[in-house]
Amino acid sequence: MMHSDIKSRPAYQALVPDLAGSRHLLVIEGDALPPGRLATLSNTFAPVADSLHTWLTGAPAVEGIAGKLWQLGSVEDVLDTLACATRGYGMGDRLYVLGTEPFLWSVAGAAALIGFGPGQLQLEHAGSLRRRVWCTHCHVTTENVTTGIVACRGCSRHLLVRDHFSRRLGAFMGVMVDAEAPGEIPAIEEVFA
């Protein structure tokens, strides 16, 4: 399970339908789905099946999911579809997102742009704990980081991945690890598998 005492990072929780909502949209990163999770989600969301749409990325076709199922290629397709949905989103809409941390925050950011408030949004983490890392020096993000120190894709500096998280960027902060003593780079270890 993901647990941390990083104050700037939210506590992710298992998705449950908010019965106060009038329309429900479940967005799932197919590649991050643990085995069997789709079936349990389907059960959990059965009470709102009549007003539920599910968007699933990247996974093979699935049977028996509650509500209306749409398959989308990637997170970019999700963002495009969200932004140009022909139906408007209203105050009774609820959005539920399941996936890796970068996926969650990409979708949450797009939802905020079209007016979803925090009370209309639920996020459940699934899959890898790999991080998106934002380089404080060159502002380039490096994806899929599994080590506590990573070479920046933009400026090649070795960055220490700090436990400080920006929801706007969906990323952790990376700061040059050997600035005070150039060349002194601690051993690089896998920590976010």
Partner: peptide, 28 residues
């Protein structure tokens, strides 16, 4: 549409009714 904020100001009964109607329509 999403992103609307509701403000009510009046007698207590009217405020309560507005808040309840918003909750019933799914407003967070």
């Amino acid at each position: 549409p999403a992103g609307t904020h509701l403000y009510v100001c009046g007698q207590a009964a009217m405020n309560d009714e507005g808040i309840a109607a918003a909750a019933a329509a799914g407003w967070p």
